[in-house]
Design a protein around this nucleic acid. Structure first.
Lengths: 237, 237
DNA sequence: CGTATGATGTGAACTATGTTTACTAATACA
DNA sequence: TGTATTAGTAAACATAGTTCACATCATACG
């Protein structure tokens, strides 16, 4: 792990390039990542960038992985800072943070969950990494939900306990595959919450929600609270 | 409305250009619309396209408006073909169609709800048109929901009837502004359903859902049925 | 019927882009 | 100090959107 001076400088420049790319995406959109523009911004010529990233695709891959990890970190952090003995508050905190991060880092969120960038092609190894990072983002929510159910702070209605076989079986398979120690009900509820939150966030980012509901923060918080109620939260707000 | 032969040919070519553009997007992604490639595909040179669209942006605008209208038509059609006296089935049909259209027309759906295309800039007039088309898409769902509530096929739980002021007021404002004849509860429930369905669809299109739940069609249908239950449907499936 | 007009198309040119190649300048290490 | 590696450049190639000057040809009019 000992880095030579050269390696340190190299890494610094790699970060500088990513920062310039992010700045550019923020201004012009995720798809507008231009090597030549990045080079101009940091006072180099375009071919020099190839000393740091073997192609535009590799640079974009680095940005995507960074974004995934930052989101996962943010959600884990929200989980850690919520009251440890209160899984319901943990669930809320993580759900709220999902949107907060998306709004505060629109570009990175679009990089993860938006349209693919034109001409960008992901290698299978990278897909595996992003899938892992994606799963890591929602581990806190899964854990909090499972705990809430075990503590009977959430008593899910029968619909979510006795799931029909065609829904139940794939969930079971997935749980076994990853060796999770959770019930299919937990898994189903998390997917429900994820889908709901994700949809509201996407609509907000595309500008479809704000003109309709005014303050989206308020609506989102209300929806999160209501989601817990729908899940069978036994604690009134 | 009488068209000369020339105008007819002109319109035909405009359609041919759009078709080529759609074919290209389907193959290479929404952002990869290339005038030169379109020209090649239909046996012309790129500058010739400027006789039909004054720029790449204007072509993309045409594609976006087409997509919006096609989605609205599809949802209205689903509404019309559901049993007229059964608003619950109408609601289901429209929600199911929303996903079905998105999956069958991924590219057009991304054009509407995905990342903006790089360097594409929308004029305010176009934004107004798309907002209108977007509203038109969800009119059937709004109407069916309002009817279901009036017929007491849906009796929404208290949470959705007595909405907190900070949620209620923006909804009321919006309803007045468009002169809709619906209750804020209807509006809230539609936003809830829209957000939920939209999120699941986006996750599916990005490939995040299928590996987790296997058959997404089954999960989505299950979620739609459960949404009606959450809204307070008095009819058991 | 012949002619002028306007629509339709082409090819060259301009500014961008990502990428490769050949070359130079600087740095680190023996 | 000498040498191998690294960091950077300039030139070149193919791609893109767009503009311009020009040719062609069907239509409309005198």
């Amino acid at each position: 792990m000992t880095q030579t001076r050269r390696e340190r400088l190299h890494d610094t420049t790699r970060e500088e390039i990513k920062d310039a790319a992010r700045a550019q995406m923020t201004k012009e959109g995720t798809a507008a990542v231009s090597l030549r523009a990045i080079a101009r911004a940091i006072g180099m010529t375009a071919p020099a960038l190839y000393r740091y990233y073997s192609s535009r695709d590799e640079l974009i891959t680095a940005l995507i992985l960074d974004a995934f990890n930052a989101l996962a970190d943010a959600m884990l952090n929200a989980y850690d800072h919520a009251p440890a003995n209160n899984p319901l508050d943990q669930m809320k905190a993580v759900m709220i943070e999902y949107r907060a991060w998306a709004v505060a880092h629109r570009v990175d969120f679009q990089l993860i969950y938006g349209n693919p960038i034109p001409d960008y092609h992901q290698t299978p190894e990278v897909s595996a990494l992003t899938a892992l990072a994606s799963a890591r983002s929602f581990e806190p929510l899964v854990r909090a939900t499972e705990t809430a159910i075990r503590m009977e702070l959430i008593v899910p209605p029968d619909e979510y306990v006795n799931l029909p076989a065609e829904i139940l079986n794939p969930l079971k398979t997935q749980i076994e595959r990853y060796g999770y120690d959770i019930s299919p009900t937990t898994f189903y509820l998390v997917i429900m919450a994820w889908g709901h939150g994700h949809g509201l966030i996407m609509l907000e980012l595309d500008g479809h929600l704000q003109p309709i509901v005014g303050d989206v923060t308020t609506l989102y918080a209300h929806r999160v609270n209501d989601l817990l109620r729908q899940m069978g939260s036994t604690v009134r707000e």
